[in-house]
């Protein structure tokens, strides 16, 4: 089923706060071969992926039919251990090309004070059955 173009402009509810722990960072760094001096640059995906899962569930889209088209992070400041992060996903574009939906999203990642930490833009490609 195609993804509804009416979703453009829709903002989904924020994800539950995610606390960045030493353990989460160490696991992510080990999995990607990164050092642990700094939180790895792509670590915020842990939070934005939760927002994406919520979106897919709300729209009844099967994760197995999703591939990633594009990703961009713009950081206001580095993520640090102890941060309590929340992602709020908004749909910024929907296009259909030959049975494939191309959905552009923008997620604002904020800390416990509500301050913006990172903006994550993602394009996801939904391959229809």
């Amino acid at each position: 089923m195609p993804i509804d173009a009416d979703l453009v402009g829709r903002e989904f509810p924020p994800t539950r706060p995610f606390v960045v722990t030493d353990e989460e960072v160490a696991t992510f760094a080990a999995a990607t071969g990164a050092g642990t001096e700094r939180v790895p640059a792509t670590f915020p995906v842990v939070v934005t992926f939760r927002a994406l899962l919520d979106f897919l569930e709300a729209e009844r889209v099967d994760l197995a039919r999703i591939v990633h088209g594009e990703q961009k992070f713009a950081y206001e400041r580095p993520v640090v251990v102890g941060d309590e992060l929340t992602a709020t996903l908004a749909v910024t574009g929907v296009r259909q090309i030959e049975g494939t939906d191309i959905v552009r999203t923008s997620s604002a990642i904020t800390d416990a004070d509500g301050a913006l930490v990172c903006t994550a833009g993602a394009t996801i490609i939904h391959r229809g059955a």
Binding site: T32, G33, A34, G35, E37, R38, P40, A41, T42, E70, Q71, K72, F73, A74, Y75, P78, G121
Partner: peptide, 18 residues
Amino acid sequence: ARAVATWTDDAEVVELGC
């Protein structure tokens, strides 16, 4: 990003995209 960290001695990343 790992390559970038290696090249830059773990510099702060302000933007990353592809």
